[in-house]
Design a protein around this nucleic acid. Structure first.
Lengths: 243, 243
DNA sequence: CGCTGTCTTGAGAGTCCTCAACCGTGGTGG
DNA sequence: CCACCACGGTTGAGGACTCTCAAGACAGCG
């Protein structure tokens, strides 16, 4: 429906992080949390740190799934395409998230850097070997996959049953939560990305932003800097009285 | 949007199956495939077989996630609700599928029997214990979770970017594949279930069935017995030239 | 300072929804 | 035995939300 794009908003980049597992920023929240402090060396030995500039592809749907990645900085976009160009963004990943789980031999989606991104990469074979010694590592991966699954189901509810305004409110709530935003939410992705994530068009996203502004729920400082003016009503709109 | 319902189509029920792990019908395709033949006794020791009549709930969103289930016969519906009654069906499960993966302490969705259903139930604690002795069991669960994730992302594409006709074609393809249907597809679920699965209304589902008939792609033997007349064009419509 | 890509805004159209009536089937009970 | 009821499914008319097409505004960059 819309074509992939990127912006060069670099607020999400923290390339100044030390690239040692011991001091990694997502050490406690990511896969590696399952490794004892003392054995981090073994993890560090099989990991390689890589950067992707905004807009670059990390891998494409159909590629051989050789690696598993951990996002340590930046924002990643997962998407699937139809032949006629219609695109569905299935998720946005932030620091601490992992990607590449495809226990077939191929990735089932495309992963691209929305902002400049820093990743640590594991070869699946290496990781499998490490699983033999560290049971918790595998167990943690299963836990994280379960979270992903719950998130995916939540997104199906958004896509299938929410209105444009509810979708956008849900989206803002998600980004706000994932980026620990208080009042000001920074959006690293374009309107096209948001549209393809919510099953809308760019125009509708734009118009719906305007509507939320008019309702007094938010204010647009710039197109990608959203100031929340009424968090309660925004949240209410987002879950439409969920549960 | 629509209210849960059920029908008493019992074609999906095979309660005459022996309820021994050794002779279980899904032995080779399900979680248990990871257990060596000789040790099935240990699995059988911690499993209990249960039946649910069509329409009955297996568990509700928010319930403590004490059990993990394996579907051995029948069809299960997973769904999430909004407070105003809007419902999203996030998946249908068939023989060999598992459910209950919620490594939080609560299920994140409701599971209900569409047809009469036969399940085998594991207590999560028992299963975790068994994981210590059988690594493959845990690994297999991770593999199955990965499949689920890929399926969920595929469904997001359907919900976000496909038209009503494409949605219904995708749905028929899915049910056909999962039930090993050749030409005649049996639908155990109601139009309301299908609507809530595809993010449509009952009326639109009904009208779209009529449209597919008119296009010569299918024929309705009864409301729940669909005869495929042009499998190629139906598949083409379903994936809209996917990939 | 003009270019390119993104975002916004407008007008009209279309797909799908809402509301409503009707049909068919299966179960129930008088 | 059959009328009745309940539920699921179909069909129709009108409306609403979102999309399409189009043009203009804005911002970053060479």
């Amino acid at each position: 429906m819309t074509t992939p794009g990127h912006n060069d908003n670099t607020d999400w980049l923290r390339l100044d992080r030390p690239i040692q597992c011991q001091t990694c920023g997502v050490r406690t929240t990511s896969l590696c949390a399952a490794m004892p402090e003392s054995d981090l060396g073994r993890l560090h030995a099989i990991v390689s740190h890589t950067n992707f500039a905004a807009g670059r592809a990390i891998f494409y749907e159909g590629d051989s799934a050789l690696n598993l990645y951990n996002v340590t900085a930046g924002v990643v976009r997962l998407s699937k395409l139809l032949a006629d160009g219609r695109r569905q963004v299935t998720g946005f990943l932030f620091a601490g998230d992992f990607l590449g789980l495809a226990f077939e031999d191929q990735y089932s989606y495309t992963a691209e850097a929305v902002s400049d991104v820093q990743l640590c990469r594991f070869r699946r074979n290496d990781l499998t070997t490490l699983f033999d010694d560290y049971r918790d590592l595998e167990r943690r991966l299963l836990t994280m996959a379960s979270h992903e699954l719950a998130t995916a189901q939540e997104q199906m509810l958004v896509l299938g049953r929410k209105t444009a305004a509810e979708k956008l409110a849900s989206f803002l709530a998600m980004v706000g939560a994932r980026t620990h935003a208080e009042e000001t939410i920074q959006l690293p992705m374009t309107r096209a990305d948001i549209a393809d994530y919510l099953g809308l068009t760019v125009e509708t996203v734009s118009r719906t932003f305007a509507k939320l502004v008019q309702m007094g729920l938010i204010r647009l400082q710039t197109a990608q800097t959203i100031v929340v003016r009424d968090a309660d009503r925004l949240a209410e709109l987002a879950d439409a009285g969920e549960g």
